[in-house]
Nucleic acid binder design. Sequence first.
DNA 1: TTAAGCAACTGAAACGTTACCAACCAAAAG
DNA 2: CTTTTGGTTGGTAACGTTTCAGTTGCTTAA
Lengths: 345, 345
Amino acid sequence: MTEKETKKITIKDVAKKAGVSIATVSYAINNTRQVSREVKERIFTVMEEIDYQPNRIAGSLRRASTKIVGLIVPDIANPIYAELSRIIEEQLTEAGFTLIVSNSEHSLEKEKNSLTMLRTMRADGVIIIPSSSKTDHINSLVKSGVPAVILDRTVENIVADAVFIDHAKAIFDATEYLIGLGHSRIGYLDKNLNVYHKTLRQEGFRAALDKHGVEYHKEFHVQAGTTFEAGASAMEVLLQKKPGPSAVLAFDDLIAVGALRTCKDFQLDVPNDLSIMGFDDMPLCSYTVPRLSTIFYPRFRMADTACRMLLGRINDEEEGEYRQVVLPLDLVIRETTSFNETRVK
Amino acid sequence: MTEKETKKITIKDVAKKAGVSIATVSYAINNTRQVSREVKERIFTVMEEIDYQPNRIAGSLRRASTKIVGLIVPDIANPIYAELSRIIEEQLTEAGFTLIVSNSEHSLEKEKNSLTMLRTMRADGVIIIPSSSKTDHINSLVKSGVPAVILDRTVENIVADAVFIDHAKAIFDATEYLIGLGHSRIGYLDKNLNVYHKTLRQEGFRAALDKHGVEYHKEFHVQAGTTFEAGASAMEVLLQKKPGPSAVLAFDDLIAVGALRTCKDFQLDVPNDLSIMGFDDMPLCSYTVPRLSTIFYPRFRMADTACRMLLGRINDEEEGEYRQVVLPLDLVIRETTSFNETRVK
DNA sequence: TTAAGCAACTGAAACGTTACCAACCAAAAG
DNA sequence: CTTTTGGTTGGTAACGTTTCAGTTGCTTAA
């Protein structure tokens, strides 16, 4: 026979053994009312003795606040989201909250499921990295009174707090930088997802091209997925074109690293034969061969402001109009970008 | 003025509007007793109408089961743990559970904190990747009746279900493979953490050396941290030694990739000047230059069996003795390992 | 005609907390 | 001597579910 079921021990047991009322125990534990030193001590030693763990479920029910916040990410296997979630967890834990992170796997439906899960759980707040530009479910969440902040991705009609990056500007800068290096045949490895910031970035790209009178090559615009593999095969497609681009902008570092690998397979010397630029600056970038030039994604400030905004709402310090903050990005130039020497007509 | 606080809507509201008792509503929602078709329909349409979300907190309290399971990982930013957690989340979500993953950041103290958090949350079960060989807190968790399974890392005195890999055998195989390639001066980039599987792997290493009468070079055994950077600088240390190793075993792929980068910086040609072998086979391995030879970490089987075991315990299908399953690993040879051509005396 | 069986539903007691409303007591103030 | 004050403590009603133990009204068997 297996072990006896250990009887659940509750605040009542503590109260009885310490010879006080359960109210007093509650006050002592939560520091929510003056309790005399001696009684407090008695309570705490009893708690130790009988290994009492307060039942947060019961507390949450009574208090109508769970100290839970949810985070919905498109894919935790993407290093940049992993980092983001690690920072957020750290900050929220610090503030006494428990984080539940949920993968939407780039699927709107899973995102919705996660959201209703978080609602039935009565999460005190939610941070979402939307997986599409659809946003109704988020709006209705906000409308129903749950504090929420949208992270990373721009959405068309936002009626919530949001913090994201200046996608268009970042790509504009990157493109301008490449043009400055003498590149005029610039490829673009895009993301095959229906997200709004994809459009924004494309606009930045085109704007820079236009500004400098550089031609936009439609055939150099190819779509990629969300993995190294996707980047590699997209690059392969791009390299079929003759003549090909002399520089390539990748939607993110994963794609860029995949592309880098393909270049090697095609005996191309990066950056001399071809420049490549990533996006995100994930830790790997300094360790690829050659080191990847990219755009720094301000994960810490991102996570930090998102947490601040959310906690502000939760604690009702922040009221009224929704705020949108957009953070600037910086190019980080390493070894995969250089002057265009091919001078192909 | 901000929006009016929307009155919370409960099962009572549904009951009243549908003209039935709350008991019936509960039975209808949970399919836990026969309810006539018409009443059921009435209930569901009302639920839609007033946008009722069952309160899982209240349910959990009453039912004494939260449908929450916790996962404690050392560092979610390590791709291999990210993958593991993604798979686990998928499987558990499938089974109707909600996963809470918590980072211990390789710290025993944070691990303990996470564990007590999960206990106060009344998680139905816990999966732990221990961050040290200390295990008392896990044992006492198990003793107190919480289903738990230990993942990935061996611990000395396990009194819980566990699934891990055959660390010693894996390194034994890898070492033997390198010896077979003619290497006799083999470096070892170890992990600077106090974990038991570190010892196991070292034993496997030494066993293979002994078996083939290859000398163990103490000076080639250097400690590294948990990042690319750590691998890079550890490799730098290793390369100071003259004469140096002709092959290197890295504790994990992160370290190996860092090491690879350092080799490049030192103008070493991998694998001709030096062979490198990683551990884990994270997705990146096929995209490094050159592609990293490594050891495949069976993440899916790992996650799968862990979930199975845990759910078995939670549903009381599994009783009695704790089970330990250990999974085999396979070498995956790519481009960073080759015959020793240097023939340095 | 009664008893028994069945399907469908209901009332209300838990679950373990928190927090409101008190009460008590001693000391200080009037 | 009465009132006030402040520092302590207790009883107990909620919180929103789930589920046990009935109840009701019908049909079928005896």
